[in-house]
Simulated scan of single mutants.
Amino acid sequence: MIAEGLGIKNIVPAYRSPFLQPNDILTGVSFASGGSGLDPMTARIQGVIWVPDQLKDFQAYIAQLNSITGDEERTRSIISNAVYVISAGNNDIAITYFSNPVRNTRYTVFSYTNMMVSWTESFMKELYNMGARKFAVMGTLPLGCLPGASNVLGGVCLEPANAVARLFNRKLATEVNNLNSMLPGSRSIYIDMYSPLLELVKNPLRYGFTSPTRPCCCSPAAPIPCLDASRHVFWDIGHPTQKAYQTIIPPIIQQIQQSFA
Rank of each mutant, 00 (worst) to 15 (best):
M1W: 09
G5A: 05
Y15Q: 05
R16A: 06
R16C: 10
F19N: 05
P22R: 03
P22H: 07
P22G: 02
T27P: 02
S30R: 02
F31G: 00
G34T: 04
G35S: 03
G35Y: 02
S36H: 04
S36G: 11
L38A: 05
D39N: 09
I45L: 12
G47Q: 11
G47I: 07
V48E: 10
V48H: 12
K56L: 15
F58A: 06
Q64C: 08
L65I: 08
I68Y: 09
R74W: 11
T75A: 02
T75R: 02
S77I: 11
N81R: 10
N81Q: 11
Y84E: 08
V85R: 06
I95L: 12
T96H: 08
F98I: 10
F98W: 15
F98N: 07
S99E: 14
P101Y: 10
V102N: 14
V102K: 13
R106W: 13
S111I: 04
T113A: 01
V117G: 00
F123Q: 11
M130Y: 11
K134G: 11
K134Y: 12
F135K: 00
F135L: 06
A136N: 05
A136W: 02
A136F: 07
A136E: 04
A136G: 10
M138F: 13
L141M: 13
G144Y: 03
G144C: 05
C145Q: 02
L146V: 08
G148P: 08
A149W: 04
S150T: 10
V152F: 14
E159C: 09
R166E: 01
L167H: 05
L167G: 00
L167Q: 04
F168M: 01
R170S: 15
K171D: 08
K171A: 09
N180L: 07
M182Q: 13
L183K: 11
S186G: 08
R187K: 14
S188L: 14
I189T: 04
D192G: 08
P196A: 03
E199Y: 04
P204Q: 03
P204E: 03
P204S: 01
R206D: 12
G208T: 01
F209Q: 00
F209W: 03
S211T: 07
P212A: 05
C216V: 01
C217Y: 12
A222T: 14
I224S: 15
I224M: 15
P225R: 11
S230T: 03
R231N: 14
R231K: 15
R231M: 15
H232Q: 06
V233Q: 08
F234N: 02
D236A: 11
G238P: 03
H239C: 13
P240N: 07
T241H: 11
Y245R: 00
I248D: 06
I252T: 08
Q254A: 15
Q255D: 13
A261R: 12
A261D: 14
